[in-house]
Design a protein around this nucleic acid. Structure first.
Lengths: 339, 339
DNA sequence: CTCCCGAATGTTATCGTTATCATTTGGTAT
DNA sequence: ATACCAAATGATAACGATAACATTCGGGAG
């Protein structure tokens, strides 16, 4: 059933007939190849206008055996963080004439794998994925088909193809060491459950290492349901243990941290004296706060830029570095005690 | 140049040969059609596994004359607002087996038009666009080709095909009337320049009407560069006139309003006594603030849900309502004076 | 006037799949 | 045994474009 009415579209053949030339001449004229006289080209383009002709990308992709499509896999759109990275890539990708097939995975590897299968049906020219932890099937398919693949946001010695990102373990460690030096001894972390977000897990590992080395209480991991960031922060604070309360809380990112801080203050706590608040990413929210939060700033835009550049290089046959590591910047703020 | 290595992928023919059946049997088995014995199906699927066969979507779309692709046009990803609407749609769209081809337009109609051309090459099954104000070429192409098209976020009597949204003029008016009743008489609006965001323009028109009817000062429109929302708010406040300063500022959305409020307080102003702050959309940030902002809450998630439902109905031949109007909710907060 | 050459144009096969219309097969009723 | 039927399977022609090769054409050199 459900044949959507009569969608009748002009084909290259229609154009050729009306313009009184061969298919190939139309094809050449439309694509701006040379070997067509100026007069003919004008005439053809005229007819193209009249008939509202749009070339069929499927036919083109079929005969040329790959398409001007790039698959893009993000965990979520509820996150300025990914928008930033995307912003860095978009121009570059667009100018090279590609379109983006986007999915959001909700940090679900299975879901990502399923989407990858769907995606590959379109014979994309390249694939961009978030992070370096994927379903084995995804890795093997992308590798096996030799599809240029960019993994962004995290680094590894053994990327599917190329990767550009930051070292989450090191970033977590550096942040932890800084906060530990300020005298905090009862750390907690608020974020997704272990296993959901591999990058969060790596940062937590860094934090744990930092605090363990100075013999503090072990880091308590508080789990919140994925949701709007600000609400997650609030929920995170509410979920803190009442007895033996942490003296500092690390949040998955700055927005969540802000939500947590608001909840803390509403509960009558003073930041940073009663409770230290630490974010991650150095989001712009932080720049408008009267008392900026302690956080670790990440080069999101640049990651996108560099990633896109490398991917395009890869697409044009030049081999870019497989593993590119960008630096983070510690941003001490006023939501942790001064030393 | 730049032939990306040897990407050699199994075709349906390879599977057929290895499984010792005809192409059609493979095709049927893979698609789960009936008319294939269980034994044969198992055998075929086995070979599919072995060869890592993925059907070619381009060939399929070519012969079937349309694809399981939906084009999605958003102004920007820097906005929880669109993420919310998307969230409402995604599941529905996904479960029906479609993939999304996404673009962001940066509120540029030309850019949108250019993308639409590119998109149509892929013969999408449907298109989703933000708002109801588009390039004439876009309207005529989508209509002419009879492509199921959903316009979301705004309403009009004459949508391209179907639309689901809110009445921005009415929402602006209601918000303006509320604030005027509180006694404010020198209103300003902070947002994109006129012409960039048609929905903002409509809301502003509503505000103007509300304030004009009670003989207040005319609404001053302050323009800020598109950017991160929080920074836009800050910039908006900085751009307010020093002499004859407004007594209330309407912001394009809650995040921008928050940025503006932070800047105001840093500048020594007291909210709401020295300056009223009004947002829009009822974003979740508002729910974690100790003193929630005055705002107009919009049914973003629901818009996505309803929109997707209508679009899928349209795709299966049922005619949904062309124009669906959802209600907003006024949320008086503590960033404007009490009556 | 003829030959030759490059530019402009045309012809044909092909890409991987599905729709449509055969054909085969195995079992059942007579 | 024979005829018949539905279920399973197969052969062939599209779909709309491009690559690769073939042809035409017009003009300058000899």
């Amino acid at each position: 059933m459900a044949k959507n009415s009569t969608v009748c579209r002009a084909t290259i053949k229609d154009v050729a007939e009306k313009a009184n030339v061969s298919l190939m001449t139309v094809s050449r004229a439309v694509r701006g190849l040379n070997g067509v006289s100026e007069t003919t080209r004008q005439c053809v383009l005229q007819v193209v206008q009249e008939l509202n002709y749009v070339p069929n990308g499927n036919a083109r992709a079929l005969v040329q055996a790959n398409s001007k499509l790039i698959g893009l896999s993000l965990p979520t759109l509820f996150n300025d963080v990914f928008a930033d990275a995307l912003l860095g890539m978009r121009r570059t990708i667009e100018q090279a004439g590609y379109s983006c097939l986007v999915q959001t995975t909700d940090y679900d590897t299975e879901r990502e794998a399923k989407w990858t299968d769907q995606l590959l049906e379109w014979r994309p020219a390249a694939v961009i994925m978030t992070g370096v932890d994927h379903h084995a099937r995804v890795r093997s398919k992308l590798r096996g088909d030799n599809i240029p693949t960019l993994e962004i946001w995290d680094v590894t010695d053994d990327p599917i193809d190329i990767c550009v990102g930051i070292d989450h373990l090191a970033a977590g460690h550096e942040l932890g060491v800084h906060v530990a030096q300020l005298g905090y001894r009862k750390p907690a972390f608020v974020g997704p459950p272990e296993g959901d977000d591999p990058r969060a897990d790596k940062r937590v590992a860094g934090l744990i290492r930092a605090f363990r080395s100075i013999g503090s209480d072990p880091l308590q991991r508080i789990t919140v349901e994925p949701n709007n960031a600000f609400l997650m922060g609030q929920q995170g604070f509410d979920a803190l243990p009442q007895t033996n309360r942490p003296d500092v809380v690390f949040f998955l990112n700055d927005h969540i941290a802000f939500g947590g801080m608001m909840a803390a203050e509403r509960a009558g706590l003073t930041v940073p004296n009663d409770l230290g608040i630490v974010g991650f990413n150095g989001l712009d929210l932080n720049h408008v706060l009267a008392r900026p939060m302690t956080t670790m700033s990440t080069p999101r835009r640049q990651m996108g830029l560099v990633g896109a550049r490398h991917l395009l290089a890869r697409l044009s046959g030049i081999a870019p570095p497989r593993n590119t590591h960008l630096p983070c910047t510690l941003c001490p703020g006023q939501t942790t005690r001064a030393q």
